[in-house]
Design a protein around this nucleic acid. Sequence first.
DNA 1: TGCCGTAGTTAAGCTACCTTAACTCTCTTA
DNA 2: TAAGAGAGTTAAGGTAGCTTAACTACGGCA
Lengths: 195, 195
Amino acid sequence: MDTWKRFGEKEVSHSMAHYLQAVAALKVEKGHARVGDIADHLGVSKSGVTSMLRSLERHGLVTHERYGCVELTSTGAGLATRTESSRRVLTVFLTEILGVPETVATEDACMIEHLVSTEVSVELLRLTAFLRSQHPAAKQFRDAYRASPHACAAHAPGALGALGAPGAADACGVCADTCLHESLLGDVAQIAVRR
Amino acid sequence: MDTWKRFGEKEVSHSMAHYLQAVAALKVEKGHARVGDIADHLGVSKSGVTSMLRSLERHGLVTHERYGCVELTSTGAGLATRTESSRRVLTVFLTEILGVPETVATEDACMIEHLVSTEVSVELLRLTAFLRSQHPAAKQFRDAYRASPHACAAHAPGALGALGAPGAADACGVCADTCLHESLLGDVAQIAVRR
DNA sequence: TGCCGTAGTTAAGCTACCTTAACTCTCTTA
DNA sequence: TAAGAGAGTTAAGGTAGCTTAACTACGGCA
């Protein structure tokens, strides 16, 4: 009932993760990271950068002396690398295994890269590497999966069953009483904000 | 360079998604959703609920008359269902396919459920259903995958190669110049906030 | 050496989300 | 039917991130 509250207690926020990645990228790209560089890189104002750097410094993720360059601490650098790797694993999985369009994969990976646990990233890497490998079972999977129906798996042959409410019509092994495929597609068309 | 900025422009925020789910759950559980119920359910103050409801109403996701019950609009109900389904698909995938502990899966699913695109959820459902099915290729995958090394896939036999920078040592088909497995594990131990 | 342009900073203000404290409404009950 | 309990609301205040506007420091050049 309060897992959801830990969202705000993650070690880095979405913004922070991207600031760290920006600093890391700029160090590689031009050898140093200055306030203006970061602002340009991220498309935010310089004053926004200044205040975020103060916050990152409080968290021990960067060092920054007034009017000087920004440096990642080892913790900050570790976080930047980890987020970067997470994004990469996600992107490959989404495009190569799930086969979603690159634009969608990029967007989704960017949104969740900093929220996915290390355990999940590591296992996702393992699965992705396996399914892309020359292992016979992986090859067979690719052939069979390509040929399997793209529609709701509820209608696929040979489902496992028994995941949702007991006794419920469990056709695809994942859906239970309701077809998840359909509920995922639920029309959430235009959500306007009235101010 | 500004994909990251769209984080704040998602149709629902993490909080909003959970408020919508709370209302939906309470409707099922006790037939109605009142401010106090929602506050208890989510572990926030009643005043917090009141102001969030104002916001959700502006977004056209709920209706709420003063001192009365809260109702989901059709848009709000659709979003609640979609988020719920997304969480469920993610949880099954993470536990059953990736094999991460239930606690980790629950936490991760909760964090990203509202951020994952419909395309990805649908494809994840398809993959999960397939890999759990009785299809021979799925069975073979399960046997082979169980037996495959849990360590970095870079050391696994028969990697595909050619994903990262050209010419880079690409051992596992996902990693390129650096081993993602190791960089994912980078020590980000204790990140303290100094206030 | 002193001036000026640019880089960087502070200040003030905005939205989102949360809190506590104090107020008001509604409903039950005597 | 009027009082009190308790549900709900407003008000004020805090953090995180962003903005613009105005100010300050730095470094190159006459």
